[in-house]
Computed example of a mutant assay.
Amino acid sequence: MANDWIIDVLADLRQYALRNNYIALAEQLDDAIVVAAGELICSADPAGDAPARPAPGVEAALARRHTREKGDEDERGFAPVC
């Protein structure tokens, strides 16, 4: 897929946010990774340009998002990101 580089960029930004203790930003970037993956899949041409499996980082972002939706927040109201 020609545009899957955006997932790598978002994942790099998420790692930067975590290293600098920007937890809320890291969580938002998880959501952005999921949205970007969905957009890439929806915009893939019907000739088979869609990936056979999610791009690297997408499965981890989905797992973290699922954890947050279950309500496993810490004392600050943030779900664990690692």
Results as ranks from 00 to 15, higher is better:
1 M>R: 07
4 D>R: 13
5 W>C: 00
5 W>S: 05
7 I>C: 04
7 I>F: 02
8 D>P: 00
8 D>A: 12
8 D>N: 09
10 L>Y: 03
10 L>P: 01
12 D>F: 06
13 L>H: 14
15 Q>H: 15
17 A>E: 04
17 A>S: 10
17 A>R: 00
18 L>H: 09
19 R>T: 08
21 N>F: 04
23 I>C: 01
25 L>I: 10
25 L>C: 06
28 Q>L: 10
28 Q>E: 15
29 L>T: 00
30 D>C: 12
30 D>F: 01
31 D>F: 01
32 A>K: 06
33 I>E: 02
33 I>Q: 07
35 V>N: 08
36 A>D: 01
37 A>Y: 06
38 G>H: 07
38 G>W: 05
42 C>L: 14
43 S>E: 15
44 A>N: 07
45 D>R: 08
45 D>Y: 03
45 D>P: 01
45 D>K: 08
45 D>V: 02
48 G>F: 01
48 G>C: 03
51 P>C: 07
51 P>F: 04
51 P>A: 14
53 R>H: 08
54 P>Q: 03
55 A>E: 13
55 A>C: 11
58 V>I: 06
58 V>H: 03
60 A>P: 01
61 A>I: 07
61 A>C: 10
62 L>Q: 14
64 R>T: 01
64 R>W: 03
65 R>W: 07
65 R>T: 12
65 R>L: 13
65 R>N: 12
66 H>C: 09
66 H>M: 14
68 R>V: 00
69 E>M: 14
69 E>F: 09
70 K>S: 14
72 D>T: 07
72 D>W: 13
73 E>V: 15
74 D>N: 13
75 E>V: 10
75 E>H: 11
77 G>H: 03
78 F>G: 05
78 F>Y: 14
79 A>C: 04
79 A>L: 00
80 P>M: 10
82 C>W: 15
